[in-house]
Design a binder for these strands. Sequence first.
DNA 1: TGTACATCAGTGAACGCGCGTTCACTGATGTAC
DNA 2: TGTACATCAGTGAACGCGCGTTCACTGATGTAC
Lengths: 193, 193
Amino acid sequence: MRYPAEHKQHTRARIVRAAARRFRSRGSAGAAIADLMRDLHLTHGGFYRHFRSKEDLLAEAFGLGLQEVGDRVVAAVEQAPRGGELKALIDAYLSVEHCENVAQGCPVAALVSEVARRPRAAREAFQRALRNHVTRMAAYVSGATPEERVSKAILLFSGMAGTLSIARATNDERERRRVLDEARRFYLSAAGV
Amino acid sequence: MRYPAEHKQHTRARIVRAAARRFRSRGSAGAAIADLMRDLHLTHGGFYRHFRSKEDLLAEAFGLGLQEVGDRVVAAVEQAPRGGELKALIDAYLSVEHCENVAQGCPVAALVSEVARRPRAAREAFQRALRNHVTRMAAYVSGATPEERVSKAILLFSGMAGTLSIARATNDERERRRVLDEARRFYLSAAGV
DNA sequence: TGTACATCAGTGAACGCGCGTTCACTGATGTAC
DNA sequence: TGTACATCAGTGAACGCGCGTTCACTGATGTAC
């Protein structure tokens, strides 16, 4: 059947959104196209009207996820009192909620180790997304020059992502909270300079 | 054919060693049992005389990999001048060689995001390995109590692992080296206190 | 205004492949007698 | 000392399943005349 003009774009966006969630919670190998489409009450065949391959979708979903995480962090930061921006950023990223909510959380923390193994083209897309995110975050980090702030933001961000991943792999809830707790202090003092 | 007494243990050890390398460089999904066994000039059927499942092997290979990384770091630290232990540890972990050598490098950096998605039993094995490693590393970290040193070691280690992962996902070599460079300074000043 | 045709998002069967796991079998050596 | 049997690491065919991708088809709506 023929669909109204913007229908296709709308479906495409729905696919990316669902994928962003599925990839984060199950990983690339664990997220099947057919399941994804079924979530949207569609069948798998139609997928290829929107994307050339699963790989392409992964790259795009990664970008969307990181964008959303950035939005959420920025929202938290905007609410912070003057001078407390960095603390708000760190607290938001290393919050228990973020740790528990993999599906809506940072795609870097959820997918880093996989990203490094993807084909070069895909890695380039990830890097664009990453660079964009880090540039946004750099606004809240101290440093003499913009480059210095971006550098620091990369370190802060990649470090926190690593710690968040470890926390997620930890079974014991108390231990998990303790790591997050201490990490918040650690990164605040490390990046606060 | 019947094999000499210690033959079985020896084969088993070879499998774990090969697996540790393969899992790190290709990820769990990318490392097939048959390929692994072929590397050792064996056939896939024999695998199940040694392990109950691929999952079991992954857990054990992860442990071995982390043990080896620990050994290498300790070796580097032992060569350091008195007072320079922490710097030596950080420099070794965030070295260009470690970054380039995924197959022999830190399994946490190579597999974190996958670990969090494995069944609980597997995660427990990972945590034992991790706890053991972190306890070893704690010896070189400052802190009033042993617990404080262990906590700091976790943060240092998970942060560096995250940064290493990000560096590995980075295509541009200069950018990659720059991140490692700055990370060495960042973590030294962050954990040196 | 009505009719024939084109379009194209979505359908669902089918293809092909990789892979974890199972299983009947092999055959050199150890053990029982 | 010689013989029959047991053992068990390793073999390789086969099973079963999941999944990415392809493809002929559908059918409501838009367009040309």
